[in-house]
């Protein structure tokens, strides 16, 4: 009796575990769809609000300063080391296989197509994406967003659209800077450590240079800028529950932006560099 009772209890527990597991998965799927739906709705509202761009021009300029100009030091710093690492890696990979004139070519293509746009975007996502989410999240939990609403000021037009435009414009600008600085970093390593001359490095850069590589990287960076701004705004607007909620929103904004940057890196690369 006791044994039978115990087996029955185990079966009921298993059923309960299974159904709670199914419920949890179902809830996660629904939440995922809701999040994606809300993100697309936000994106749609941003696009619609672009018609009011002239009215928000001052805000756009302010955001360009915050996202672009103020990000320059960290972008430059990371770009120097990106170029240096690219040179070390390229020299190591080519050792005994490829003539050193190709070193500049390898570094150039790696930086323009991949390292420049992607690493710049990841650095900017960390700095700007989290900042946007924290700022808008704080505004949300302190009723500042509601205050805008009560003043008949559309928060998407006033807060999100300027950040969206600033992201789309300043991300490629930062990427161009980063590319240039990274090439200088690569040159430093090539000349000082690998031991090739400046002329050989420059010849390598020119050799096989395709405008498509440069433009491909810049097109990617536009997508990345939009992703960073939209993720920051979306998670900032969704913040709830005080300081902890704002912290969670900032973390989510960076993680989501980083993942989306890598996904879109593949999609845009597969589209452009076929």
């Amino acid at each position: 009796m006791l044994l039978r009772g115990s087996a029955g209890d185990d079966g009921a527990k298993l059923n309960r575990d299974q159904s709670s597991y199914v419920r949890a998965v179902g809830r996660a799927v629904i939440t995922g769809f809701q999040q994606w739906g809300s993100a697309f709705i936000l994106l749609g509202r941003i696009v619609l609000s672009l018609r009011h761009l002239p009215r928000q021009f001052e805000q756009v300029v302010l955001q360009m300063m915050a996202m672009g100009v103020h990000s320059l030091p960290v972008v430059v710093f990371s770009a120097v080391f990106t170029g240096m690492v690219a040179a070390v890696q390229a020299a190591y990979q080519m050792q005994g296989l490829v003539p050193s004139i190709w070193l500049g070519t390898g570094i150039c293509r790696a930086i323009l197509t991949e390292l420049g746009p992607v690493l710049t975007a990841l650095v900017v996502a960390g700095r700007v994406g989290s900042g946007i989410a924290a700022e808008l999240g704080t505004m949300k939990v302190t009723e500042q967003i509601d205050a805008l609403e009560t003043m008949a000021v559309d928060p998407v037009e006033h807060l999100v659209m300027p950040r969206f435009v600033a992201g789309a414009v300043m991300s490629p600008v930062l990427t161009i800077f980063a590319n240039f600085i990274a090439l200088i970093g690569g040159w430093l390593v090539a000349v000082l450590s690998v031991g090739i001359t400046t002329q050989v490095y420059l010849d390598g850069l020119r050799f096989h240079f395709h405008t498509r590589d440069l433009m491909g990287g810049i097109i990617k960076s536009i997508f990345f800028g939009v992703i960073i701004a939209t993720s920051g705004c979306f998670h900032g607007f969704a913040a709830e529950g005080g300081a902890a909620g704002v912290g969670r929103a900032a973390t989510k904004a960076v993680v989501a932006a980083a993942v989306m940057i890598l996904i879109f890196d593949y999609i845009v690369s597969a589209w452009i560099f076929r």
């Binding site: 505004m139 302190t142 009723e143 500042q144 509601d146 205050a147 805008l148 009560t150």
Partner: peptide, 14 residues
């Protein structure tokens, strides 16, 4: 809403 003004509990100043 342009005909309304609202004072929030925490002031909600920007």
């Amino acid at each position: 809403r342009k005909r309304f003004g609202m004072l929030f509990q925490g002031s909600a100043l920007f």
